[in-house]
Design a protein around this nucleic acid. Structure first.
Length: 506
DNA sequence: CTACTCCTGGCGCCTTAACA
DNA sequence: TGTTAAGGCGCCAGGAGTAG
């Protein structure tokens, strides 16, 4: 019987793919329904009726994959409710004053004329590029020999002429059919904007744009005089850096025209998309590009030499800031990974225990799941790299370990619980197929992690001494939840004592 | 109070090394 | 060769802080 289960799960792939299919949300829904039975009377109102069909029980939806639409999607419903008479057409081309009339026409055929126009604009160094407008497609195909797969656009030469001939459009037109997925819309929107920006500034990454040269003063004066002829282009373009701070940079007419030019192109590409990957809602491209450019403006200002700062000091400042950021992100990622994998593990064991008819196992792992999803990412302890001495056949060697710190507000039995949860994949070989690299050993230390707890937690996940030591206003600020979770003392507890026939610990 | 600024958390994707 | 853990990278977005 166990062999069948093992085969069944291994057929899905390795542990990673197994965890990906853990129906955590479905189990949580079940807990929301069932769990209070043990400690509370039945709720007065049977609120959501959750179907106990198997399709929801096997749905891989995870609670941390909350529906999180892009902030640049304008919901049709809310818009219709509030200000429908203010004009729904404002999404594409209502921003007329800084917008270039050339691209608002939205014609693909106009690109050749714009291109011709682009060539006659005096460029500081790009006059050498005498590419014919007819040949652009051919040249592009030569350039794109490797780019059609991953959407990577080959970089132009440093001195290439600016042009409105965007290759992004062709690439996105060639993308295959994709089903409409509300959760993917944001990814597509962001990806299109990213492609346009990287192509426009001839960089591989958006963050590199800040290091590009700025647009010249003369060109900006020309732009003021004739915005149509001398406006920003889509490719090999520049930003206006003549500003002391981000605010002025944002107000620059050139930069605003740039934002609207990119936004219009993105809207055009999205409108011509053959499938529904961009969804039915209007996309506020101007807002999106404004935000992206604002990031670039910040980098431009931050990367400048501060008064009295040497070049070396500036480089050091940027490197240090970057490293700090990386360290922060690493910790955040780690806590999230801990939480998701623990919830996945608990959910999968629940599933198997149910198959085995192991009711105690279901209860145990339901508790683990409930705890984990209650305290979420913030309730996971941090780790830091460390080295310990281990003795192997009388020889001392260094071994890399992870030193796990201790959350100062968390109820200590949760740590005992997590010790068991973390060891489960190693013991439950029938469920978890462990191939590949072994985990780095975890050493629990007494180092205290003083991150504050998240708000709205139930009282029992806190260490009692922590709560007792709080000032009344501090306690109120925790906004403790109305409900509570039954806690169990796992100190010295062996979960496998009771159900050896179900747990394959050998 | 609103609008803007920007810090920090979140997350998808990738690479690398170790192992079955 | 395929799978895993682990870490890094790059981009994105929520929301706290602050100026007006």
């Amino acid at each position: 019987m166990n062999r069948d289960i093992a085969h069944d799960i291994r057929a899905l792939g390795g542990l990673g793919r197994t965890l990906a299919n853990a129906p955590v949300q479905a189990e949580l829904d079940r807990l929301a329904r069932n769990h209070p039975r043990w400690t509370l009377p039945k709720p007065l109102t049977s609120r959501k009726t959750i179907p106990q069909q198997t399709n929801t029980a096997t749905s891989p939806v995870k609670p941390w994959h909350k529906p999180n639409p892009s902030p640049y999607l304008k919901s049709i419903r809310t818009k219709g409710n509030t200000t429908n008479f203010l004009g729904d057409e404002s999404d594409e081309d209502a921003d007329d004053e800084p917008l270039l009339p050339t691209n608002s026409s939205g014609q693909k055929s106009s690109s050749s004329t714009e291109k011709g126009k682009g060539r006659e604009i005096p460029m500081p160094s790009g006059s050498r590029n005498t590419m014919q407008s007819n040949e652009v497609n051919i040249i592009n195909e030569d350039d794109e020999d490797e780019a059609d797969q991953g959407g990577i656009y080959p970089l132009d030469r440093e001195d290439a002429a600016e042009t409105n001939d965007s290759r992004v459009q062709e690439v996105w037109e060639k993308k295959g059919f994709e089903e409409y997925d509300p959760r993917k819309v944001k990814l597509h929107v962001n990806a299109l904007a990213r492609d346009l920006l990287c192509e426009g500034f001839n960089v591989r990454r958006i963050w590199a744009i800040f290091a590009r040269d700025g647009i010249s003063q003369e060109r900006q004066e020309l732009h003021i005089k004739d915005p149509v002829k001398y406006g920003p282009k889509l490719r090999n373009t520049r930003i206006d850096k003549f500003a002391p701070d981000t605010k002025t940079m944002k107000k620059s007419p050139w930069n605003r025209a740039l934002i609207h030019h990119f936004a219009a192109k993105a809207g055009e590409i999205a409108a011509q998309c053959k499938d529904d990957r961009f969804g039915p809602e209007a996309i506020d491209w101007v807002e999106l590009f404004s935000d992206r450019f604002y990031e670039i403006f910040k980098l431009v200002v931050k990367a400048r030499c501060q008064p009295g700062e040497t070049h070396e000091a500036r480089v050091l400042r940027l490197v240090v800031a970057d490293n700090e950021r990386k360290t922060r992100n690493a910790k955040v990622s780690l806590r999230h990974a801990k939480r998701t994998s623990r919830s996945d593990i608990a959910t999968l064991v629940i599933k198997e225990c149910r198959k085995w008819g192991d009711q105690e196992g279901v209860v145990f792992w339901s508790h683990a799941l409930l705890i984990t999803e209650t305290i979420e990412d913030a309730g996971q302890s941090e780790e830091e790299d460390g080295v310990i001495d281990v003795e192997i056949e009388g020889i001392t060697m260094k071994q890399n370990v992870k030193k796990v710190s201790r959350l100062y507000w968390r109820e200590p039995v949760i740590e005992e619980l997590y010790k068991m949860v973390d060891s489960a994949p190693g013991m439950e070989t029938a469920i978890f197929h462990r191939a590949g690299a072994p985990r780095i050993p975890r050493i629990r230390t007494d180092k205290i992690d003083h991150r504050p707890p998240p708000l709205g937690l139930p009282q029992s996940v806190f260490r009692k001494e922590y709560l007792a030591a709080l000032m009344p206003h501090e306690l109120a600020e925790l906004k403790l939840a109305d409900h509570d979770i039954e806690m169990y003392d796992f100190g010295g507890f062996d979960p496998n004592e009771h159900n050896n026939e179900a747990m394959d610990t050998s």
